[in-house]
Amino acid sequence: MKGQAQGCKGCTESVRVTPEKLERLIEIAIQGREVVTEEEVEHRLRQCSSCSGLQYGTTCQYCGCLVAVRAQLLASECPHPSASRWDKTSANL
């Protein structure tokens, strides 16, 4: 990926995740972990959807994660390099 224009750290444009696979990945990722409220997940995903770093509708270009998975986890933070797009206090909703 050397010399490639700005994009996702971990994938190429040909990478797509089906809604079914995404749901399964979320189930696996949250097992045994603390999660945020559904309202907080929605808030985080709204922030991600308005971010220029969202690639392919699912992937964060700054960390390569699937944002729908990362948004579920209490310990997660927004990896945006200049400023977090997730309000840290909103996780207490």
Rank of each mutant, 00 (worst) to 15 (best):
I30T: 12
V36C: 01
T18C: 14
A91Q: 06
A83V: 05
V36P: 02
G32R: 01
R44V: 13
Q31M: 11
G57E: 02
S52P: 04
S14I: 06
E34M: 08
R70G: 02
E38R: 06
L66A: 03
K2H: 11
H43D: 15
G53E: 06
P19S: 13
V15F: 13
C48Y: 07
K2Y: 10
L66R: 05
K2F: 11
N92E: 11
Q61I: 09
S50E: 12
G7Y: 12
G7S: 13
R24H: 13
K88Y: 03
S76K: 02
H43V: 04
T58F: 04
S82D: 12
T59P: 00
S50W: 03
M1H: 15
N92H: 11
G10P: 00
P79F: 01
K2Q: 14
G7P: 00
G64K: 03
E20K: 13
V67F: 01
V17T: 10
A5C: 10
R46Y: 07
E40L: 08
E23V: 09
T58P: 00
R24Q: 15
L73E: 04
R33I: 02
P81C: 07
P81H: 10
W86C: 11
V67E: 05
G57S: 07
Q61F: 08
R85S: 10
S90I: 14
S90L: 15
G7C: 05
C48M: 01
D87V: 07
S52M: 08
E23W: 06
Q31I: 12
M1E: 13
L93Q: 08
E13F: 07
Q55D: 04
C60M: 07
L54I: 10
K9V: 10
L45Y: 09
C60T: 08
A5F: 09
T18S: 15
V67Y: 02
S76F: 02
P19R: 09
S50Q: 14
M1N: 10
N92A: 13
A91V: 13
G10H: 06
Q72I: 00
I26V: 14
E42R: 09
L93I: 03
E39T: 05
N92D: 14
L74V: 02
C8Y: 05
C60S: 09
S76P: 02
A5L: 12
E27A: 15
M1G: 10
R44H: 08
A29Q: 00
I28W: 01
I28A: 10
Q72Y: 01
H43A: 13
L45A: 09
G53T: 07
P81Y: 06
R16F: 12
S84H: 03
